[in-house]
C-alpha cells in the first residue's frame, strides 16, 4: 500500500513538517500509556471508589 512511495528509509524529515508543533490534543491521542492511565483512573474514582464509599456509609437499621 505504501510500496510506491520513495524509499528514503528512516529519512530526513521535511522542513515544512518541522514548522508547526503537534497540537496538545493530538499528542494526548498519540500516547497510549497516558490514555491507559486516564481510562483506568476515571472509572476507578467515579464509579468504584465513589460507589464503595456510598455503600460503606449506609447507616445501621434501627
Amino acid at each position: 500500500m505504501n510500496d510506491k512511495v520513495a524509499p528514503n528509509l528512516l529519512g530526513t524529515i521535511e522542513d515544512d513538517e518541522l514548522d508547526e508543533p503537534i497540537p496538545a490534543m493530538q499528542q494526548l491521542l498519540d500516547n497510549p500509556f497516558l490514555l491507559l492511565f486516564i481510562g483506568v483512573a476515571m472509572p476507578t474514582v467515579l464509579y468504584v471508589i465513589w460507589g464503595v464509599m456510598e455503600i460503606v456509609s449506609i447507616p445501621m437499621a434501627k
Partner: peptide, 15 residues
C-alpha cells in the same frame, strides 16, 4: 490513506 493506515497528514487535529 484509510482507517487501517496511519493518517497521511502530520497534523490531523486541526482539520
Amino acid at each position: 490513506m484509510s482507517a487501517i493506515e496511519p493518517p497521511v497528514e502530520r497534523i490531523w487535529w486541526k482539520q
